[in-house]
Design a protein around this nucleic acid. Structure first.
Ligand SMILES: [Zn+2]
Ligand SMILES: [Zn+2]
Ligand SMILES: [Zn+2]
Ligand SMILES: [Zn+2]
Lengths: 131, 131
DNA sequence: ATATAAATGTTATAGCATTACATGGCGAAC
DNA sequence: GTTCGCCATGTAATGCTATAACATTTATAT
């Protein structure tokens, strides 16, 4: 895990945009946020995002084509993370479950499948929006 | 679940392309396959795919932006399906695990979250490609 | 200082998905 | 049998997401 202060200028800018977003945000939306800071091309955002993902500071939500600040200060590179995504208010909950992790690892080991990255995303409605 | 014979012409064409693919295939690749059959626009493919997904005959792989024929003849609209995707040979294994399903449902119920659709995709290397 | 790796800037392009609108087919209601 | 409503289709245009390719600059190590 890399410290906040290790970030380059572009990485800090993108991280700041993720923090302000308080929810999932697309790379292009991040770019629009940061045009006033001098960013001009999508690649500048995508490159910064790649590093932030590597550092575990942000996550990519595959079903939204969007990115979100990691909800946990701790490291979880070896964890299997799940996201619950409210389709109404777009709020996201990040969690992990050891039993789920064990079962998925059991399946992969039985098949001699070597996992590199796992995506788990539950779309639905949160308590507030379902009421 | 809808029967094979209920399919419209475009839906049958797209299903045929999925069957011939024997693996994940993008909507645009399907379109290219079906140009000789008269299809011309992406929307024709996407509309057919939407129906096939609804019927449970095909699945969308979010991490690949691709689609694949359902591996199981039975219905599993209420199941939570997982996919193991080999990043080398692109082969895909479709499976489900009751314990995983229970744990995810337990989490959502505890949060009063009402799930509508769950995505689980494990990227990695299959037995053959990891050897 | 020099070599090496990492990050950046810029343009262009590739790939994926939907909006909008017009048309056609087919069964139910009348 | 005609009218209506529904579903599928056809077509063009557009929007959104992501990467390739290449040149340049900046940081790091020896
Ligand atoms: Zn996290
Ligand atoms: Zn909500
Ligand atoms: Zn299936
Ligand atoms: Zn393989």
């Amino acid at each position: 895990m890399t410290l906040h202060t290790d970030l380059t200028r572009n990485q800090s800018l993108v991280l700041g945009a993720l923090e302000r977003a308080e929810g999932p945000i697309s790379a292009y939306a991040i770019l629009d946020e940061l045009r006033t800071d001098g960013l001009r091309a999508p690649l500048q955002v995508y490159r910064a995002l790649d590093k932030l993902l590597d550092m575990g500071l942000a996550h990519r939500l595959e079903t939204l084509n969007a990115f979100i600040l990691c909800a946990h200060p701790h490291e979880h590179t070896s964890e299997i993370i799940a996201f619950a995504i409210c389709e109404t208010c777009r709020q996201v909950w990040e969690f992990s479950d050891d039993t789920v992790r064990e079962r998925l690892i059991a399946w992969t080991q039985a098949q001699d499948f070597r996992p590199s990255r796992t995506t788990m995303e539950i779309k639905g409605q949160c308590r507030k929006c379902a009421a």
